[in-house]
C-alpha cells in the first residue's frame, strides 16, 4: 500500500458451478496473491455462493458468485483479470473502479 496510484476496485467473478463450494475461497485467495505481491491490499472477499444465472452461460444456468473489494494499482488489477480469464473454471469477471470515498471533482483533468 501507500502507493499514490492505488485505486479502489471491485471485482466480481462467476465461477464454474461444478466446483466444490468449499474450495472457492482458497482458490480465489491464490489468485489474489497477485494483488498482495503487487503492493495492493485485499479488503474483503464475499463469496455469494451458488446463484441462478439470468441466462445460460456455457450450457449452465448456475454459477458461483464472488465479490472482492481491493485497493491496487491499475496494472496489477489488469494482470489479475488476465489471469482469471485464462482459468477454465472462471466463467466471467468484471472489474469496476469504485468512486473514492471523497471524490475530488476538479481532479477529472490531469493535474498540471
Amino acid at each position: 500500500m501507500g502507493s499514490a496510484l492505488a485505486r479502489h476496485y471491485e471485482l466480481m467473478v462467476i465461477l464454474d458451478p461444478d466446483l466444490e463450494e468449499r474450495t472457492v475461497a482458497p482458490s480465489l485467495d491464490q489468485f489474489l496473491s497477485v494483488v498482495r505481491n503487487g503492493g495492493g491490499a485485499v479488503e474483503k472477499v464475499d463469496v455469494w455462493g451458488r446463484r441462478r444465472l439470468s441466462y445460460e452461460i456455457r450450457k449452465s444456468h448456475e454459477g458461483i458468485y464472488a465479490v472482492i473489494d481491493l485497493h491496487a494499482e491499475p496494472d496489477v488489477v489488469a494482470e489479475l483479470d488476465r489471469q482469471l480469464t485464462l482459468n477454465e473454471s472462471v466463467i466471467r469477471t468484471k472489474v469496476i473502479r469504485l468512486p473514492e470515498a471523497k471524490k475530488p471533482r476538479a481532479a477529472r483533468r490531469p493535474a498540471a
Binding site: I14, S54, Y55, R92, I96
Partner: peptide
C-alpha cells in the same frame, strides 16, 4: 448493462 453482463439481469425475458 453491467448487471446483464454478469447475468444478474436478463438481456431478454
Amino acid at each position: 448493462k453491467n448487471s446483464r453482463e454478469m447475468a444478474l439481469l436478463p438481456y431478454t425475458s
